[in-house]
């Protein structure tokens, strides 16, 4: 089967995207998929022929072999393959994120596409413009250390999940040292 974009016969990867409550499926080769995900301007997303997955026909009660009411599979509730089931930090499920209910700051990284879709759908015909407000001041020693601390905490959670206890112990000591340093310095101090 050829790639949906370059039409060459290669090893294909399947990609699904939820838009307007429908699932769009693509079969792309590795290079085309990378380009699609990187949103390269020369490969506008519209250039890919997206086809909505066919809706499953409703099964009438009398047609059902058991005579019981059959529930057709809900297309919109199938999880896209690139989106994890839950947020690793707060365990918010992807379905909650899809409804626009993030549980922690990490959810915005994990479920960015779903949350953006939820935010945009509340304002019809209008995509949310990029954030243009003030940014937290960066460049101070305090902020830099804080960012490093947050990164280390994230890594600690990840290595604990993978049961890498030696690495976890090393990270825990580094976090304690960073916390002590942070409490000793004043905000706004320059590196």
């Amino acid at each position: 089967m050829p790639c949906d974009h370059c039409k060459k016969n290669k090893e294909l990867k399947s990609y699904a995207e939820v838009k307007d409550g429908q699932i769009y499926r693509l079969s792309l080769c590795e290079e085309c998929l990378a380009l699609y995900l990187s949103k390269a301007p020369e490969f506008s997303r519209n250039a890919f022929s997206r086809t909505a997955a066919p809706k499953k026909a409703k099964v009438r009660r009398e047609d059902s072999p058991t005579g019981l009411k059959a529930t057709p599979e809900k297309e919109a509730t199938s999880r896209p393959p690139d989106i994890p089931e839950t947020c690793p930090d707060c365990e918010t499920s992807w379905l909650q994120a899809k409804k626009g209910h993030p549980g922690c700051p990490s959810c915005f990284g994990v479920f960015d596409t779903l949350l953006r879709h939820a935010a945009d759908s509340s304002v019809p015909d209008k995509a949310r413009p990029p954030y243009a407000g003030r940014h937290p001041q960066s460049g101070s020693l305090h902020n830099d250390l804080r960012q490093e601390l947050q990164e280390k905490r994230r890594r600690l959670r990840a290595v604990l999940e993978q049961e890498q206890y030696e690495e976890a112990a090393r990270l825990r000591d580094a976090i304690t040292a960073l916390e002590n340093t942070l409490s000793a310095i004043q905000p706004g101090e320059q590196p």
Partner: peptide, 16 residues
């Protein structure tokens, strides 16, 4: 500076 607020470049200050 003291507390570190949840911030995302695209979203701005984060909220539930």
């Amino acid at each position: 500076e003291k507390l570190g607020f949840a911030f995302h470049d695209k979203w701005g200050y984060l909220s539930p």
